[in-house]
Write a protein that binds this DNA or RNA. Structure first.
Lengths: 217, 217
DNA sequence: AATTCATTCTAATAATTGTTAGAATATAAA
DNA sequence: TTTATATTCTAACAATTATTAGAATGAATT
């Protein structure tokens, strides 16, 4: 090995290309959205509240790091994660952030009106209860995202249809609402609405990415 | 929830603090070194071939992201990873990079003189062979790193002592040499030397971080 | 064929980060 | 107490990245 230093620099530089993707808040948000299923540039831009141009620039970085793939569908170009491992990395990064950053812990605590979020250890019991029909697992994300992947036994009522479709839900059982993950506030809103209307509602922080439910490849 | 956008921006910004740490080649290299055990600023600077000042600046970023902890030991300040999860994230990021980036795959292939690296699936059989004494697992990192953590059944001969201590190794069994991980070239050099000297040597790409052998907390 | 629409590319500027040098700090040794 | 050593802090400049605007592309619609 002549110049070990140059070789090493090259290797770490390559790995840093992947790291860079996860160093920008907006790119993280894009990755999390793509964890919910494939999306067009326009939809992504609207969801993260930035211009289409800027979204396109961020998506190019993801593309150049080979973390996303694109496919033209008529007029639109659809982006999807290249790999299940990308979603897993997002989950591991935000989990580590929640573990280490007190600021993040505090911010997350403020979101939850009550500290009744289900924690990961409850997964088995939640699944069992959902299977028996003792609780209703409610996916409040847009219908497409539910179709792309959803928790076992979950039923779909997107947040913006919830008010009109309240009658589909039982009042005698707990409703466990989830959305895209801990940084998505849809399930928080859903639980608030449900509680106001006299339902017994619980907020599940984790989404499909955190449950590892994404299709591989 | 009044201003969901502001809350979200705040949350993703916090996670990006963690991502930023892994977006710089030199910081990645520092993280990998810290996966081998605690180290002083001077040692870290020497290993990654940058000035102490710049190393200190990079380490401050790690500190501000709460991914490392410091402890004064006499004249020196020792840095260590805050958490096993930091090492796991490093492994997951470089694994994803190796999976997605063709450039990285090619660069890694060039390093290995022969493609006889043991792959992760061989772990069980390696362990079994090492336990029976059919192969010698050789840790060529500095002695302190071996002491901090090492593969099961591994014996320590640092690379720079290897030439003088060749007689400690058997010629009738395979020697499986490893170092800090796939981007560390010490094991490559060791295998080259051993082969030249008539030993049957194999390069194991993974190190203690990849084997998940670090002490928690 | 012309027009529209979604998206990307290019180039420019604003904002952030990397890097370096000099001053400051805090401990250890004399 | 003085001096040496290891490290950090501050401030400056260089390099990179984020953001925006305008031109270009390429498929769908008229």
């Amino acid at each position: 090995m002549k110049d070990a230093r140059n070789i090493k620099d090259l290797l770490y530089e390559q790995v840093a290309r992947i790291g860079k993707v996860f160093s920008s808040p907006k790119r993280l948000e894009l990755v999390e959205l793509l964890c919910q299923g494939e999306k067009t540039v326009e939809v992504l831009a609207r969801e993260v509240s930035i211009s289409v141009k800027l979204t396109s620039a961020h998506l190019r970085e993801l593309r150049e790091a080979h973390l996303v793939e694109t496919e033209r569908q008529g007029k639109n170009i659809c982006y999807r994660l290249a790999n299940k491992a990308v979603a897993e990395l997002w989950v591991q990064i935000h989990t580590l952030a929640e573990d280490r950053l007190i600021e993040l812990q505090l911010a997350l605590q403020k979101i939850a009106t009550q500290p009744d979020d289900l924690v990961p250890s409850d997964r088995d019991s939640l699944l069992k209860a959902a299977r028996k029909g003792e609780v209703v697992v409610l996916d409040v994300r847009p219908a497409e995202e539910y179709l792309a992947a959803h928790l076992p036994f979950a039923r779909s009522i997107p947040l913006d249809e919830l008010r009109q479709r309240l009658n589909e839900l039982p009042k005698d059982r707990s409703i466990v609402a989830y959305c895209r993950g801990p940084y998505c506030l849809m399930a928080v809103d859903a639980v608030e609405l449900l509680k106001r209307e006299g339902y017994s509602a619980i907020h599940l922080r984790d989404g499909v990415a955190e449950w590892g439910l994404l299709r591989s490849q």
